[in-house]
């Protein structure tokens, strides 16, 4: 008998007999309906203490803000996805942006360059979670996984209207259970560790900085 069948059979022929399934009451996870502004305030309150930087660009040109933020960090390259947006907006902007590097080749062909030479990466998001201050990232062919992981600075665009109260809300409203992408992420701040004597240090493997630009 295969290991698989052996394991399954052993459990199905359990000595104690069949087990009953308890009721599951998910109300402890429920939160009140929050307005967009309340959600944004909660998002901020959750993310800022873990060193996520949030800029409200709703009434401004976010590209100009991005340019200024990257300039102040002396970033000379910005990694972006190969989809039409936000590439088109960036390309058509008059702002002084770092050199745009478009992720349009399989990683194997330019891994060295990706790991060694890029200063910042820009991604979109599939919304955010107010309660925990989390971004929902849904990498795909036009926005590969490593943009948000390898460069030392990760800038994410978050539409204020796409803020959800809780993870459960987001999962339900976006109907995650009907099928997940190859990789989905919740990102709540920059990479960090406390493995050396419980002292926080940022940027251990992923980005040292996470900047969220809240847009319309």
């Amino acid at each position: 008998m295969s290991s698989r069948d052996q394991i399954l059979q052993r459990m199905r022929q359990r000595r104690g007999g069949a087990l009953s399934t308890p009721e599951k009451d998910f109300t402890p996870l429920k939160r009140p309906e929050w307005t967009t502004e309340e959600k944004l305030a909660r998002f901020r309150a959750a993310m800022e203490p873990v060193h996520g930087e949030i800029h409200d660009c709703r009434n401004r040109d976010w590209v100009a803000d991005l340019a200024e933020l990257l300039q102040s960090r002396q970033a000379s390259t910005l990694l972006v996805g190969n989809g039409p947006e936000p590439l088109a907006t960036l390309s058509s902007s008059a702002a002084t942006l770092p050199e745009l590097v478009v992720y349009d080749e399989p990683v194997a062909s330019w891994k060295e360059h990706l790991f060694r030479n890029l200063d910042a990466g820009l991604t979109t998001t599939r919304g955010g979670i107010a309660e925990t201050g989390s971004l929902i990232l849904w990498p795909d062919a036009s926005e590969p996984r490593l943009i948000s992981l390898v460069p030392p600075i990760h800038v994410a665009l978050l539409k204020a209207t796409e803020l959800y109260g809780t993870l459960s809300d987001a999962m339900a409203e976006q109907d995650w259970s009907s099928g997940m992408p190859t990789n989905a992420l919740l990102v709540s701040g920059p990479s960090k560790t406390a493995d050396i004597e419980q002292t926080l240090a940022y940027g251990v493997h992923g980005p040292r900085e996470l900047i969220v630009l809240v847009i319309e």
């Binding site: 959750a46 873990v50 309660e131 925990t132 201050g133 989390s134 997940m180 992408p181 190859t182 990789n183 989905a184 992420l185 919740l186 990102v187 709540s188 701040g189 920059p190 990479s191 960090k192 992923g206």
Partner: peptide, 10 residues
């Protein structure tokens, strides 16, 4: 409240 990354691989 949550870790920096919740990585869902499918």
């Amino acid at each position: 409240h949550i870790t920096t990354y919740v990585n869902m691989v499918s």
